[in-house]
């Protein structure tokens, strides 16, 4: 079984390399009319500040986490108790935000179907850095209950960089709070550079995404 997996692995790696080589970032799939609306720049890795300034910035970031209001899967159902008086995440400076532009944390709520992955990628790219991703539920780790489904992906970290996983099906609100605390700690330690990881390995991520999203009708990078 492991042999077969290895073989498939190399095969898909080759495929990724091929897609990456073919890929150009000039939004070539778009019509001329649409091209004008989108930028064709690649994401750039941004150097952090140095010394105490970055420490201070990270502290401020960790104290004000704004979740993108996008319930991508069934995990979103436990976000609602988390927001309300039983668990009250506002106490920790965590609050939901309706637009990706203003939010800094993306909670992947469990399984992600291919159709949703496309929206996840788009929303993730629209968020302004530094941005953090929380993988919620076992489905984001290895597919969970739906490991053999033809429409849900198995590993979300092949498509966007993930900072913290919270396992379980479903993870309890307490587990979510623990995950958020872990994320805060990691931010303060300066270990959450997922945005730079994404920029540096952009070709790899993009090739992975293109391998499953068959009708790619959006710009290659949505800022």
């Amino acid at each position: 079984m492991s042999d077969m997996q290895d073989m498939e692995k190399t095969e898909s790696e080759e495929q990724i390399a091929r897609i990456a080589a073919e890929m150009r970032l000039a939004n070539d799939g778009l019509s001329d009319q649409d091209k004008a609306y989108f930028c064709d720049a690649r994401p750039q890795a941004v150097e952090p500040y140095r010394g105490i300034m970055e420490k201070f910035a990270n502290w401020a970031r960790s104290q004000s986490l704004w979740i993108l209001g996008f319930g991508t899967g069934c995990g979103a159902i436990e976000l609602r108790p988390l927001m309300t008086s039983r668990f009250d995440m506002y106490r920790y400076g965590i609050q939901p935000r309706p637009t990706p532009r203003q939010s800094s944390v993306f909670v992947i709520g469990g399984y992600a179907s291919v159709k949703t992955v496309k929206r996840i990628v788009r929303s993730y790219e629209q968020m302004q850095g530094p941005k953090f991703v929380l993988g919620l539920g076992s489905c984001t780790v290895n597919g969970g209950m739906y490991w053999d489904s033809y429409n849900t992906i198995n590993r979300i970290d092949y498509y966007i960089p993930v900072d913290v996983y919270i396992t379980g099906c479903m993870p309890r609100p307490e587990a979510l709070l623990a995950g958020f605390n872990r994320l805060k700690q990691m931010i303060r330690e300066g270990r959450c550079e997922g945005m730079n990881t994404y920029a540096e390995n952009f070709d790899w991520y993009k090739a992975n995404q293109k391998q499953i999203i068959k009708d790619w009708n959006m710009p290659d990078y949505n800022w």
Binding site: V141, G143, D148, N154, Q211
Partner: peptide
């Protein structure tokens, strides 16, 4: 996909990078 000859497990393993260890 709902036709019987479509093998969802095979498709999934081919497409979605199963995490080793299962």
């Amino acid at each position: 996909p709902m036709r019987r000859e479509f093998d969802t497990k095979e498709y999934s393993e081919k497409t979605y990078y199963p995490r080793p260890g299962r």
